[in-house]
Every structure is written in C-alpha cells, then in structure tokens.
Design a protein around this nucleic acid. Sequence first.
DNA 1: CAAGATTGATGCTTCAATCTTC
DNA 2: GAAGATTGAAGCATCAATCTTG
Lengths: 150, 150
Amino acid sequence: MTLRQLWDDYVLDASVPYLMNRVVARMNRELEARLKPLGATFQHWRILAVLARDDGSSITHLARYAVVPHSSLSRLLSRMEAEGLVRRDGDEQDGRSVTVWVTPAGTALYRRMLPMAIDIRERALQGVATDEREALHRLLDRMMDNLQAG
Amino acid sequence: MTLRQLWDDYVLDASVPYLMNRVVARMNRELEARLKPLGATFQHWRILAVLARDDGSSITHLARYAVVPHSSLSRLLSRMEAEGLVRRDGDEQDGRSVTVWVTPAGTALYRRMLPMAIDIRERALQGVATDEREALHRLLDRMMDNLQAG
DNA sequence: CAAGATTGATGCTTCAATCTTC
DNA sequence: GAAGATTGAAGCATCAATCTTG
C-alpha cells in the first residue's frame, strides 16, 4: 500500500479509533461534570467501580482494570485514603503487594455515582436495541483481545 | 428502578462505556509509545490529524475535533509552534479568532505518524469484516448524536 | 455583554529512580 | 535479579480570571 493510498484510507470521520475517542471523551466529560457536586472526579469513579466488584484488589490489578497508569495510582489512592474512601493494607501472603479496600464512605459514594453513570450510558445508547448492544460488547471484547495479543 | 436493580444492572465487564474506555486507552497508549521515537505525543497526532483535513481551523474547531479541552490548546499549540509544526495566524474576518496552519515540517511528521495509527487500528479490528466495521461506525455516530442531543 | 483565545496559579500525571520483598 | 509499589523532579492539564474584539 502506497502512502497516497494510506492517506485516502484514513478518513478521519470514518476512523473507528477517532470516533471512539470522541464518544468516550464526551461520556467521561459528562460524568465528570455530574460527579463534581459530589466532590468526586472521574478517577474516583473508576477506582470505586473496580473495587465494587473486586474489593481487596492489588495496585497492579487496579491499574489494569481501572485504566489508570500504575505510577499515578499511589498518589491517587493517597488522596482517596485521606478522603476516607479507601484503605490500603499489606498483603499477608506477599509482602510486596498492597491490597486496597473500599470503606463504608466509599461504598456510599459509589451508590450515589452509579445512577449517574448508568444514566449517561443509557443516554448514549438510546434507541440501540439489546441485540445491537450485545454485538457491540462482543466486538469491543474482540478488539481488546486483538490488542492484548500483539 | 431500585438501587438494588441498578447495582445488578451495572456489571462492569459488560458495560459499554467501561469497555470502550479500556479499548481506547489501550490504542492510545500504543500509539503514544510508537510516536515517542519521533519526538511526538498523542496530542501532536490529534492536532495534525485534524489539520490534515481542516487546515486553517480556528482554535474552537480544533478543540472540538481534536478532542482537546479549549484551555489546554493555547499552550499545546505554543509548543507545537516552537517545534515548527504549526503556525498561528489572526483571522482576517474575525479579529477574535485565531487560525492554525500546518507547516511543511508538520505535514512531514503527519506522514510518518499515519501508518502507525492505521496499523494500530487494523490490529484492533483484525478479523472484523467490512460490514461489521460499518455497523460499528454507524453505531458510534449514533452514540455521538445521542450525547450531543442531551 | 457575548465569543474567542490566552494566562496565572495550582494540582495532577508522568518518567525515571528507588525501596522493599520475593 | 525480578516484581510490586512508592517518590522526586519536571512537565502538562485544568479552573478561573483576564484580555481583546464583535
């Protein structure tokens, strides 16, 4: 494929990564705005959402599933710990590992965030039928697999 | 819908926004890594990709389509201008507006970035048929419309 | 006064280096 | 020496305030 063909091939508006970036940025920005009155940020949401499922995660696990760079997590968790939302603890099996636990205040905050996140998701997917949503899930899973395989 | 039902409804792994965040973060991170040897960042890519289509954009236009917050743009463009990649100019019609133009060096850099971006897209969409890709385009467009309607 | 863009202060993120435990 | 996590220094982003033009 020549450069000229590459150029023609990459029509910005028709590029999946570009469109996904815009959709994601928009959803995140809206959620961020709604979280602000709660004194929370989008990062708080991501951490608490993962802990809601995997309480007692290690930092490495959190970094992976909360989509936060490993090296950003320490200070983010320090802030959240100071706010009383999470608690850090040493792992008894592995002294290198640190486990993160959600506090009652963290759970309470998560309960207030959850409807906001669902609302934005539903607004984005308005008019999209169940089978289309499922197809989208599967496609996104496939993309994730493809990327991780590389 | 009760809170308990909301809770059950929001299965993290099955949430479109969550999956899209992970896929997008992964693609962006990989592109960022490949751009680094060129001395460029993901932000450079976004700006140059929009200018490749809309040379002479205003700052407002760029902020919107390059998915960069308006207030971040001034200093980002100052850096890119210092690097000789873009050039800013006052709009003759509207004295408030500033137009941004890509330089030959900027275009040259874009030509080197483009195959990298396409490569990552193709890797993510490996094994995804043309009609599925088109369905995905349409769905993402719909989501964008839904979000903008709110 | 509204729209477009920039700037000052602050806070967060990031890279690389470091520390600890395995 | 490798894996898990933290920290110091530097760069970047963000909010609010500001400047300029319409």
